[in-house]
Computed example of a mutant assay.
Amino acid sequence: MDLLDNITRYLIEEELTLATAESCTAGLIVSELARVPGSGQSIDCGLAVYSPEAKNRYLSVSFDTIDAHGLTSEAVAREMALGALDNNKADVALANTGVAGPNPGDDDTPIGTVCFAWAFRHQGHVHDFCETRRFDGERNEVRLAAAHYALERIPHYHRLACGNHSAA
């Protein structure tokens, strides 16, 4: 629980409120964070959005983006994070889309591939960052690793959004 405690403390100290837009992890990011007593003061909402229609309806992800880049792409993750930030009372939004298994994606995306996006609202500006990672393991191991990774990267990208370019 050290990771979860540390991220909760960071969110509270930095006065950040989190929204998640989760496809691959299906709400696990916000669920994991909610295990920590007191974390609720830093959580605005968690959305589980699997289908392209749900991504479009709740997060304004463009069908053109999905068609051009595929569901498992940084472009889709970015639009998901920006949609979550725009539609909620949050300072930070995390999003992911990927293939947890047991089968590869429709476009043969390898099992364990997850695209992430983090979006921050800071001093009237929005900053966003994306990464793609591949995790080993069975379906739920991939989901948990992806959820923890998304949370663990919040301080790094928050520091960058705030102008600290030497963030580790």
Rank of each mutant, 00 (worst) to 15 (best):
V114L: 02
K55H: 04
H165R: 11
C162A: 15
N96M: 09
V76I: 10
R134E: 15
C130W: 03
L18Q: 12
E13I: 00
V126F: 05
C24G: 13
M80D: 05
L18E: 12
R153C: 10
S73T: 12
E74T: 15
C115L: 06
A150Q: 14
L4M: 04
L18I: 06
A146Q: 01
L151V: 08
R143Y: 03
A26Q: 05
D106E: 15
Y58R: 07
T132M: 12
Y50K: 06
G112C: 12
S51E: 11
L85W: 00
R133S: 06
R121Q: 13
W118E: 02
Q123K: 07
D136S: 14
R153Y: 09
R139D: 13
S60W: 00
F129W: 07
D67M: 01
A68Y: 00
L160W: 04
H156W: 05
H148K: 13
D86I: 00
A117I: 00
A54I: 13
A68P: 00
S62R: 08
D136P: 05
L160T: 04
E15F: 03
A77Q: 08
N164P: 00
A84N: 02
L160P: 03
D67C: 00
G27D: 15
N6C: 01
A150S: 15
S23P: 08
I29N: 11
E152W: 03
F116W: 00
N103A: 15
N140S: 06
G38W: 02
E22C: 06
L11M: 13
